[in-house]
């Protein structure tokens, strides 16, 4: 904690020993700001995608569909409902009405479809309880009692959806890591430029007995604070932009949920800290390596 405070407060006298280089300072702040801005956007997208995928997966996991042949009569439907009602782990079962089935098909076949003209199977929506039913057991029971009924527990939809969501998360974390690496590379280049511009100053500091760590400290403190400041500005801009994204009106749509929620709000706050840590480590390593090269 003391080391962090020392870094922030610094020694004004020591800080003056190395002159400020205006353009490097401004570029460092600008570049870290841009990186933090991008990081906030990427994290917001990642978290939104993750949340939406999780919810869709949950909803799919809770719901199943029992499909009966188009010519199933009322007795068959009632028998299927009875089987479901007496199955442990089934919270509810409901046969879709003609209007509900029409609504499901509207997006694909249009609103003016005459269902009577098509052999549309009868669908029964099955909502799982907690703990849920055993899908294989239920399937077996239907096979014995209603062989034409097909239970679709959505597993074949859920698996690729989860896989895609996990891939998306992985990609966004990779992008975030690349942003961090680019930030480190940029800070190293800026620090190298600053060290090269101050060769004479470093020589004089050495002549009067400065240790490498003292000289490095002046550069490290400067670049760490610049990176933290730039990243704070960039993160703030990123949060504002995320908040300004137009919200879709459909509940549960991707756009309706874009942004941070709950503990996710910590990320924009943590980004300047991470940027500062990356800048600290990168500048320190670069400065000490460079000072070792200089006699």
């Amino acid at each position: 904690m003391k080391a962090v405070l020392d870094l922030i407060v610094g020694d004004p006298q020591a800080d003056r020993a190395v002159p400020h280089t205006g353009i490097t300072a401004r570029l460092t702040v600008f570049a870290t700001g841009v990186m933090a801005f991008l990081a906030v956007l990427v994290l917001a997208l990642s978290m939104t995608a993750g949340r939406v995928a999780d919810r869709w997966a949950d909803e799919l996991a809770q719901a199943a569909t029992l499909r009966l042949p188009a010519d199933a009569d009322a007795a068959t439907i009632e028998k299927a409902l009875e089987i479901l009602r007496t199955t442990p782990g089934v919270a509810a079962a409901k046969a879709l009405t003609e209007a509900e089935q029409q609504a499901l098909l509207d997006p694909w076949l249009g609103p003016n479809l005459a269902l009577d003209a098509l052999p549309i199977p009868q669908l029964i929506e099955v909502i799982a309880d907690d703990p849920p039913y055993d899908p294989e057991g239920l399937q077996a029971r239907f096979a014995a009692e209603l062989p034409d009924a097909v239970l679709d527990d959505h597993a074949r939809w859920r698996a690729p959806l989860l896989k895609a969501a996990n891939r998306l998360r992985l990609v966004t974390w990779l992008v975030t890591l690349l942003i961090g690496a680019a930030l480190a590379a940029m800070v190293v280049l800026a620090a190298q430029a600053s060290l090269a511009a101050n060769v004479q100053v470093i020589h004089v500091l050495r002549l009067v007995g400065a240790r490498d760590i003292y000289i490095a400290r002046a550069f490290v403190r400067r670049f760490t604070l610049r990176a933290a400041f730039g990243a704070a500005l960039g993160a703030l801009a990123g949060v504002i932009v995320v908040q300004l994204v137009p919200v879709g009106d459909a509940p549960g749509s991707f756009l309706a949920e874009i942004g941070f929620q709950g503990a996710g709000w910590l990320w924009p706050l943590v980004i300047p800290l991470i940027a500062a840590i990356v800048a600290f480590a990168a500048t320190r390593a670069a400065a000490l390596a460079r000072l070792k090269e200089q006699t």
Partner: peptide, 20 residues
């Protein structure tokens, strides 16, 4: 071997400064 961006007083004190 002075640092031109520091005052004379700061230059004279530099050995103490770098020695913390």
């Amino acid at each position: 071997a002075f640092l031109d961006h520091l005052t004379i007083a700061e230059n004279i004190a530099l050995p103490l400064t770098v020695a913390d």
